[in-house]
């Protein structure tokens, strides 16, 4: 992770049928979290879709997104390397736990064994060694969250997008997973955008907060 670069959202504005939903102008340093807070339906998730390159064409967006010197706005989604975590872990149900991670390893590493070794090491990092052959659906909620995070990690993302990733976890687990994700982002020096409606998430993120929509 030697390519730590910040993320620059330059005059981003997203609107629907002429009504502006979100306006952001921010710089997120490596390891820093920008929190976007708002009630459901406020359109806060469109910011994530916009950065990831998946904004539905019904929305109009303007502005530029820069990762270091690279302008992401002109790149297709798969070239942006924007890692995403949703509120569901969304492990690919047809792949084993190990293959879920191996599939995320960048394509320049083409050897099958090499890719699996990387995945195996990733599982070991989160105390899931030996879980590689398991059916992802048999894991507990916390285990799934850990696999999902490792899947994003091995893909060597430029930045991390969190779309209410903790909202479906029960309260005991929530704090744990939150800490794991933020610790990881800080260690990997990834700029993070967090979208949430939970004040505790925003507090734990310990960064700039943007409120969207009327609360």
């Amino acid at each position: 992770m030697d390519r730590a670069t910040g993320l620059r959202l330059e005059n981003i504005s997203i609107s629907l049928e002429g009504r502006e939903l979100i306006a952001v102008d921010a710089t997120i340093a490596p390891g820093e979290v920008l929190t976007v807070m708002g009630p459901s339906g406020s359109g806060k998730s469109t910011l994530i879709a916009c950065v990831a390159g998946f904004l539905d064409p019904v929305f109009e967006a303007s502005g530029r997104i820069l990762s270091g010197d690279t302008e992401l706005t002109s790149l297709p989604a798969e070239a942006r390397h924007a890692g995403i975590l949703f509120q569901d872990p969304l492990l690919f149900p047809h792949l084993s736990v190990l293959d879920n991670i191996a599939i995320a390893v960048p394509q320049r590493i083409s050897g099958r064994n090499e890719r699996r070794d990387i995945a195996r090491a990733a599982l070991e990092r989160v105390d899931l060694a030996g879980f590689g052959d398991r059916d992802p659906d048999t894991l507990s909620g916390g285990q799934k969250a850990r696999v999902a995070l490792q899947r994003v990690t091995v893909s060597e993302p430029r930045l991390l997008l969190l779309d209410e990733p903790f909202s479906k976890l029960d309260s005991a687990l929530r704090g744990q997973v939150r800490e794991m994700v933020f610790d990881h982002a800080r260690a990997a020096r990834l700029p993070v955008i967090l979208v949430t409606h939970d004040g505790a998430d925003a507090e734990a993120a310990n960064g700039r907060i943007i409120a969207v929509g009327s609360l």
């Binding site: 390397h81 890692g83 949703f86 690919f92 149900p93 899947r151 893909s155």
Partner: peptide, 29 residues
């Protein structure tokens, strides 16, 4: 089909072809 799987795949750097053949088609087999 839950499109978020494809969003995740793209975020992992997988192209459209690869996403369709490795993720979507097997899941819809």
């Amino acid at each position: 089909y839950d499109r978020r799987y494809e969003t995740i795949a793209a975020g992992l750097g997988m192209g459209r072809m690869r996403t369709v053949f490795r993720i979507r088609l097997p899941m819809l087999s």
